[in-house]
Amino acid sequence: MSIIGMLHNQRKPQKVRKAYACAAVAKMMGVTFFYFTYEDVDFSNRFIHGKVYKDGNWVEEKMPFPDALFNAGSPRTKKERKINQRLKKEIPFTSHSIGNKYSVYKRMVESELFTELLIPSFEIEDPTEVMELIKEYKKIIIKPKKGSKGRELIYMEVENSNSIVWTEKVKEVVLSIEEVTEMLKERFSKKSFILQPFITCKTKHNHPFDFRIHVQKNGEGKWAINAIYPRVGQIGGIVSNIHSGGYRVDLEDFLQEEFSNKGLRILSQLKELALDFPEKFERLYDKSFDELGIDVAIENGHQFKLFEVNWRPGCKYRELETAQYHIEYALFLANRSKNGEFTSH
């Protein structure tokens, strides 16, 4: 019987919804599953102080090193990074980082595999660059290079030659060029940002929306569609991310409501993109991925545009479906490792 471990930063697995989902799926599949943190690893004695879910509780048990590892929490300290590297040399990890937003964009541009899908993106460090680009595009979005969940997005639009509309979430203010410059200086001193021309993607009732495509590797190591769903933001808002006040709706109902007779064609294109994109994307790296969250807009009712690719996308309310893929793929890696096909990254 294979043993699957889940590595996380949170000491208490009961606070990690995905941990319970993985434990439940593993039990149904007859797989031994345990949860642990970086502090729980004992390399000298070759065991891990794990936690196993039994009779409704997480129980501490000494566990052997697993056959495959679902690494759900990244190392945060130098000590954790060392532990992470040692584990990675011995055990197949399911999850690997794709890099920050701009490095992902550069890879995709250089590959020339995604030309029609990409939105021009610029790494910006100085407000002067922003002023030059807003003159060209009129409407822009600025977002953190390492941001997530739609946080800290800034929408800017030219009001006239002396002022700019600045929007964060749903708060809109009109600022002078000088005021915008000062605010950007403050932001840029703390974080790195990227800039993109704004893509208008709104419902008939003026709600921003996009499509989240969640794909995962299955028990055969092949890409499969977990879910495709529209995310709809607040009226007048700039983002549709669920963590920023957006909500998800049924895909087919949404397509029928917004696109009428074009809905079936768009549904087919979304499914095609869901399977075609990860295959091509994975070619850009020398490592394999277990899941991706692909966020796309639809411009002018027919052209898909990529907002971003996410590593470890959220799965709120879909934990069990997502956990099934995690466990099945971990088993796939465990079996390959037993057959001598393990390669550390």
Rank of each mutant, 00 (worst) to 15 (best):
I3K: 00
I3W: 00
R11M: 14
Q14T: 07
A19C: 05
Y20L: 15
A23F: 05
A23I: 05
K27I: 02
F34D: 04
Y35G: 06
E39R: 12
F43G: 08
I48H: 12
I48C: 11
I48S: 11
N57H: 11
N57K: 14
P66C: 10
D67I: 05
L69G: 06
F70I: 15
K78P: 01
K82V: 15
K82W: 10
I83Q: 07
Q85E: 14
K89H: 00
S103V: 00
Y105N: 05
T115I: 14
T115R: 13
L118K: 03
T128S: 10
T128G: 00
M131K: 03
L133S: 06
K138A: 10
I141N: 09
S148W: 13
T167R: 13
V173Y: 02
S176G: 12
E182G: 02
M183A: 08
R187W: 02
S189E: 15
K190W: 13
L195C: 04
I199N: 05
K202I: 12
N206P: 00
N206K: 12
H207L: 01
P208R: 02
P208A: 10
F209I: 05
F211P: 01
I213F: 02
I213C: 06
H214L: 12
H214C: 04
Q216L: 10
Q216A: 03
K217I: 10
N218H: 06
A227M: 13
P230R: 08
V232F: 07
I235W: 00
V239S: 15
S240M: 00
H243D: 03
V249W: 03
D253C: 09
F259C: 04
S260Q: 11
G263T: 11
R265P: 01
I266W: 07
S268R: 13
Q269Y: 04
L270H: 09
K271C: 09
D276T: 13
K280Q: 14
E282Q: 15
Y285G: 05
D286G: 12
S288W: 08
A297I: 01
F304H: 05
E308T: 03
E308D: 10
N310L: 05
E319R: 08
L320A: 02
E321G: 10
Y329A: 10
F332M: 01
E341Y: 13
F342I: 06
S344D: 11
